[in-house]
Design a protein around this nucleic acid. Sequence first.
RNA 1: GAUUCCGUAGCUCAGCGGUAGAGCAUCUGACUUUUAAUCAGAGGGUCCUGGGUUCAAAUCCCAGCGGGAUCACCA
Length: 540
Amino acid sequence: MPCRSTKSSASAPAAMNILKPAFRITIWCWKSNLLKETIMSQKPAAPQQVTDSNALVEAKIENLKHLQARGVNPFPYRFDVSAFADDLQKKHEKLENGAMTEERVSVAGRIMAYRNSGMFIDLRDATGKIQIFSHKQSLPPELLEQLKFYDIGDIIGVTGIVRRTPPGELTINAEKLEMLSKSVRPLPEKYHGIHDTEIKYRQRYLDLITNEGSRETFRKRSAIIAYVRQILTGEQFMEVETPMLHPIAGGANAKPFSTHHNALDMKLYLRIAPELYLKRLVIGGFDRVFEINRCFRNEGISVKHNPEFTSVEIYQAYADYNDMMSLTERIVEGACKAVNHGQTKVSFGDREIDFKAPWARKTMVELVQEKTGVDFTTIPDAAAAAEKAKLLGIPTKPGSNWGEVVEAIFAEKVEAELIQPIHIVDLPKDISPLAKVHRTNENLTERFESYANGWEIANAFSELTDPFDQLARFKDQMSAREKGNDEAQMLDEDFVEALEYGMPPTGGLGIGLDRLVMLLTNSASIRDVIAFPTLRHVTK
RNA sequence: GAUUCCGUAGCUCAGCGGUAGAGCAUCUGACUUUUAAUCAGAGGGUCCUGGGUUCAAAUCCCAGCGGGAUCACCA
């Protein structure tokens, strides 16, 4: 807890005793360390109240009091851990059943199971599980006595000798036990764990304590992000941070969250994309930058959408969208191997997806033609294209431009069938205001979106570097906004000015990391890969 | 936002008009090389909330709250 005040007090320690407990906390903040320790070493108030109570809680509090009565602090400060469960399991993999070692270790973790009146405890730490054996042969009588007051859910430290029991369980023969934190609430059922999705999301810690699958998902999420960082820094990309509070919400077509800065009396938006700031850094001379970023979009929540989500945006000067395709493949294939035992194939539901590079590449209009038989490049007029779409059974919004019509048909007819990884290339200019016009077709841009499992997982362009064209595109977006499209982009004149100083030809790439984690962990919902997904607030 | 399904003990779930149930967890005791430990016993409920129908509602109907799924918007 931050202690911001340096103010000292002349109050004598003795005076503290007459203060009510709640008031003491306030005072802690301005005390010297010495005085703080004096206060903290005082016996804490008898713990009798939790936020709500029942017989199960009371039973644990009783055990806590028993420990205190024996002089045990149920919430001590530290413990010297010398080994982790999984390391021990691996190290002694070949230890024979019934064999002893001479290795004395100290482990710490949560009691997950308690058998034979505590003689056998399953202890779990961050890496895995190990059994603890408490017996009068090695454990002093007073500790054997304390063991009665240990409960499932308590966090304890254990020191002892590693052995393997005759039935084959790697075990520590406890010579010393130490209560490290008393749990006063019952853990969920040990066999089934937490199934209630609401508890899983609102009290993620309970999900993590009880469900190995959830722990594994979040470990893989971390490994995937670590891999992305590793491959990019290995290729001389520089990790940077750009603002999350934007005076203009740019870089994507989306509804922003808005807020207000009091001191500046200024409206600010939570960023919908870091794109325009990252490009400013490229203009500044950082030729290869990336940001693993949280974005915020004030839109619907679904199995694939959370209001805040994580992506990585990458910019590489002197590269184009072809380079970005191969970079996408390197990142995704490599991340897949990193969490999938070196394999490029993963199961997702009843599907198998193979991320092995190179991926297929097809243009958007080509795929639309494959599905509908209509070559929309021969119908460049928006109204005629919309008419054709209607004949295909896909109504478009009135006033849609050509690109929006093509995109709508693509979304309706093609998208869901893009199961194996594929780059959809050369998207319409109308829907790509930050991408460079295609070098051979003025209605298209050098932009691609990568799909897998029917989901967009990456979006990239040869970045638009021409300030005159960029200004024109922004103006088109502005007129779309005026016509009621509240997701059209805002005009960012400062960004155009930056382009006027000269931006090198640049390839830019964004990858949705939550969706990538979903694919690589066989997770059906984005809420299963975001530790604390956005939920409605509930007051208990 | 629309449609639809769900909400019962701390957890996982049965019950679906007629006295509120099981397993785990908890408590008491037994046992002591177990591993979803076992054995004997006990306690534990706002059946999400509020209305309604009925002799009788956890159960049927309506509304609300929360959650899931699908759709729309979107990545």
